[in-house]
Simulated scan of single mutants.
Amino acid sequence: MKRCHLAYAASAVAALVGTGIGPGAAPAAALHQTLVVHQGESIQQAVNRARPGDTVLVLPGTYKESVTISTPRVTLRGTGARTVIEPAAKTTAGPAPSKVTKDTKATKSCAEGGNGICVIGTKTTNVEGVTVADLKVTGFARAGVFGMATDTMTVHGVQAVRNSVWGIAQERSVHGRITGNYAQGNGDAGVFLANTITEEAGALDTRRTVIDHNRLEDNRIGVTVRRLRNLSVAENHIEGNCAGVFVVGDENKPKAGDLEVAYNDVTENNKYCPKTDRLPAIQGSGIVLTGAEKTVVDGNRVTGNSGKSPLSGGIVLFKSFVGVTNDQNRVSGNALAGNAPADLVNTETKGIGNTFDHNACRVSKPAGLC
């Protein structure tokens, strides 16, 4: 196995040379390093060697492996679309039992779960400050990029393409930043955020996670926000999915919501997706709230979303499939046109305090919402 090349940051060298400080006395920040990975080398081996504050720079090439990051403040960066991470070829034998380390187990868990890049904390401690940037991740059986138990995880400039479930996903995470990415052709959501996917629980306060300036095309759903609170979905371009944005709640407490969906361009999400165990067939859904409260849907451009699903329409309030109402949501200042069966759809009969005001639209169900 080739050895990864190490290049110390120029600032560290300058600090040592300019001040005469020896290596043992150098400030911690000056010791941050860049580990450069060439095609044919192992990204995971470089990540295993990285210390907090280090960068793993992956040069152009195709890398057939899954990668797990559990060290805080590590940056995994490619060189754009020319850095491609794909699933490894299947093998029948793993390492000998005597050589199975903690890192090996974490990596196997990520790979065996069908994920591409995993950023993983623990049940008691979130891994902080990890960045994944400027690369393409494609073809994985589950998620392209997956974070669990993270704090201030940033995903930027990533192309998450044709993964079987999610493009970019986070679970049990706070302060996230998912910005400036491209998610296309993923089997479920281009961007998926949830409190937890393995058990029932009330909505998690994400402490202002931000999903912004992403382009989300040809997925089942552009963005799914499931059982979360206190986040922003803003200024994304969402086109050609079966549905644009889903905000999903259920009967657990606290209730999902207290978030914003604002200034997105949500257009022609008219792909047809058959029903699943959780949802009926969906087509032509722009922005859907189901079982949510205190959500602000403001300043979006929602056009040309048309279908015959119960969830079709421009902006739709729909009672959740476990019977939880939408309450105290505000839909205001949106520009809607060419959505069917209507620009604004409110199927709630028992929801309390939902308001529709200052929207530019022509047709609503029931009438009078425009």
Rank of each mutant, 00 (worst) to 15 (best):
K2V: 14
C4M: 14
L6Y: 13
L6T: 10
S11D: 13
V13I: 08
A14D: 15
L16G: 11
V17W: 14
V17N: 13
G18C: 14
G20S: 00
G20Q: 02
A25L: 06
A28K: 06
L31N: 05
H32G: 07
L35Q: 05
H38N: 15
E41F: 13
E41Y: 10
I43Y: 01
A46V: 03
A46F: 10
V47W: 10
G53K: 02
Y63I: 06
V67R: 11
T68V: 14
T71K: 05
P72Q: 13
R73F: 07
R73A: 08
K90W: 05
G94S: 01
G94D: 03
P95C: 07
A96M: 04
A96C: 04
I120T: 11
G121Q: 07
T122N: 15
K123V: 00
T124M: 08
N126E: 11
V127T: 10
V127R: 11
V132Q: 12
A133M: 02
L135C: 07
V137F: 00
T138M: 09
F140P: 05
M148N: 10
D151H: 04
T154W: 08
V155Y: 03
V161Y: 05
S164H: 12
V165I: 12
V165A: 09
A169E: 14
Q170F: 15
R172M: 08
N181P: 00
Y182C: 02
A183M: 02
Q184G: 03
G187F: 09
I197W: 12
I197A: 04
T209N: 07
H213M: 03
E217H: 06
D218Y: 05
T224S: 14
R226S: 06
R226N: 11
L231W: 07
S232Q: 12
A234R: 15
H237S: 01
I238Q: 00
G240A: 10
C242Q: 03
V247C: 06
D250T: 03
E251L: 14
E251D: 12
N252W: 08
E268N: 08
N270G: 12
N270P: 03
N270K: 09
C273V: 04
L279W: 12
I282H: 09
T290N: 10
A292N: 07
E293D: 06
V297E: 14
V297F: 04
D298H: 15
R301G: 08
T303M: 03
N305F: 14
S306G: 09
S306T: 13
L311W: 10
S312E: 05
S312H: 10
G323K: 15
T325L: 09
Q328W: 12
N339L: 15
P341K: 02
A342T: 04
D343I: 06
L344H: 06
V345C: 06
D357A: 05
H358L: 01
R362I: 01
S364I: 05
K365Y: 09
P366W: 12
A367Y: 00
